[in-house]
């Protein structure tokens, strides 16, 4: 299982690009962190999600 934004998902073995393709995220407006490190957009296709990974997918919201 891979924890993505706090939710356990059965996506181990997929690349980040493959996972994102199954979602509604706007790829231009998100940033991805895997186990505390940034995953650059150019690396989405080659970064494999592994069992136990913790991933954050973030975007901008209003804030002071």
């Amino acid at each position: 299982m891979v924890k993505i934004n706090g939710e356990e998902l059965n996506v181990a073995g997929k690349t980040i690009a493959e996972y994102l393709a199954t979602t509604n995220y706007d790829p231009k407006r998100i940033a991805v962190e895997r186990n505390g490190d940034i995953v650059f957009k150019s690396q989405y296709g080659e970064t494999l999600l592994q069992d136990g990974d913790s991933v954050e997918v973030v975007s901008f919201v209003g804030g002071g």
Partner: peptide, 30 residues
Amino acid sequence: TLAVRRANTKEQESILDYIPEGITLLPNTS
């Protein structure tokens, strides 16, 4: 200023749609 939060797959609207070109964005670490 803007904040960074977990992205929401359901919410398609973004604050960026409201901010015109040429504005400097100042993300915070809240």
